[in-house]
Design a protein around this nucleic acid. Sequence first.
RNA 1: GCCACCGUAGCUCAGCCGGUGGAGCGCCACCUUGGUAAGGUGGAGGUCGCGGGUUCGAUUCCCGCCGGUGGCUCCA
Length: 571
Amino acid sequence: MEEGDEGIEKKAAGEIEEVAKKLNAERIVLYPYAHLSPKLAPPDVAVNVLKNLETVLNENYEVCRAPFGWYKSFVISCKGHPLSELSKEIRNENDKEESEALKAEKKTTYWYIMTPDGTLHAVDEFDYRNYPNLKKFVDYEISGTRAVKQIPPHVELMQKLELADYEPGSDSGNMRYYPKGKLIKALIEDFVEQKVLDFGAMEVETPIMYDFNHPSLKSYLNRFPARQYQVLSGKDKYFLRFAACFGQFLMMHDATFSYKQLPIHIYELAKYAFRREQKGELVGLRRLRAFTMPDMHTLAMDMEQAKSDFKKQYEMAIEVLKSFGLELGDYEVAIRFTREFYNENKEFIKSLVELVKRPVLIQMWDERFFYFVLKFEFNFVDNMDKAAALSTVQIDVENARRYEITYYDEKGDKKYPYILHCSPSGAVERVIYSMLEKAYRDSTKGIKPSFPVWLSPVQVRIIPVKDDFTGCAIQEMDAIKNSGFRVDIDDRDLSVSRKIRDAEKEWIPYIVVLGEKEKESGKLTVRIRGNGVKEMSREELINLLHRETAGFPKRKLPLPTMLSMRPKFRG
RNA sequence: GCCACCGUAGCUCAGCCGGUGGAGCGCCACCUUGGUAAGGUGGAGGUCGCGGGUUCGAUUCCCGCCGGUGGCUCCA
């Protein structure tokens, strides 16, 4: 008996009877034998199957069942027909049961485009002329149109810029991040954390692996289509979390709170969330098996409170994406809900569409198949016409009950709250993917690709014209660095134009060339990315940097400040 | 997971029909001390993804595996 063999007795009995008939056998011995197998089923399952098998076979045969758990010792003598010595393996075929969620996907859904005035248009009648990306998104969602064969631009960029790379030593979809990529990730994480703390969330940390057999988790797992990574702790089986829901729900199950404290927000940076996606789906940073997901949950008293928080989080998500240089229009909005929710909240839905001032994709279900009644996502459409979800918020009407999460109302009675799931930015890796894809799109339009200054790994590069000016360069560097910015010096033995070329290839926003002229004038010659060369004082440059990065987190340069001291991580 | 293509130096790639491998960039050394997108010369560097098979002989042909990419499917 191995895992997944439950309920196999009928099939096994059929096979056994068939052989017994050929041999004209009258008696059958059932002998339990735990053969060498890496995934034996638990003993109680095996005993149960054996007993059932005995009952079934008893109808036509004389059956003798040896006790379970005795040490294996037996002698078999064979004579006669070759069939008298035979080994067979009988397995359950349908161990790939479709999850509830997968089945649900296949049921009836309705697609529309909603314009800011609240009108629903049929998807195939809407005029997409001014919204080519919406058209691509709709095609992607509904029919799955695909583009030409090409390596996605962001993959080449993530490698060239030494941000991230494939790691052949790990499972597919688990990436390595070089110093610059690690820095960008950390800054995005810092930023989202800052945003949700300002929003009023409490940051927590929960385990990355959970018990398969925990009752609440078990039924929740069944609601999701993706497969999990499995982990063994001795003989015990755990799965790696695919979101931070589990830990936070279990935590709130044990917490005591009343309606006066609602809404309650808890936040965790799920690092990592694991989803064992199909291999063919893994591409660069778009789709990973291990990724970093900011995950906030909100406990709301009633639907009114849930809706009001939903809208605030919707607005927060717009603001968060904007900070990454992703403006309304750089991504497509999808809003999905049940028909019942829509009928009761038409004005609310309309207000969401009004906020983004553009048509959005609507998906409506007749029945609720998922745990949520309302959900939005912001989807980035890339250069291959593929869409990837970034920010999302959902109103969950199911899991408070499943996890027995309750609050006390005015009368002191226990009640189930609504739960909002929110990822203000979406997966951090996906944010980087979107920025790179957008930068590539810019470059095809003749715009210099770049990161927002606060995310640029190197914000200022100083290029001394000769070795003699290195001392000078160090002084300038220290001054700018002490103001909280990332500066380095290209002290390599190369021509000035060569060093500028390299700095441009790294997308550095401010390049300072330092030589005789600057030493005399006391001014800096600054090459501003995509904006020509300007002369300014050190203070002016620092003020400019302050303006560009106001309100954003800061981190130090995680690299040697002298370029000559820096290893190349790639080519 | 299925189908297709790809896998040659750290990187990007060339290598016709089987006869033990090349370029550019990078790296190292030397020369050059430069003014807004590549200064010059020389050198080191490769079990041709891994494992089998065919062959006197395989980077080259065949099979399997691993990895990447595209398509299908799918996404909390």
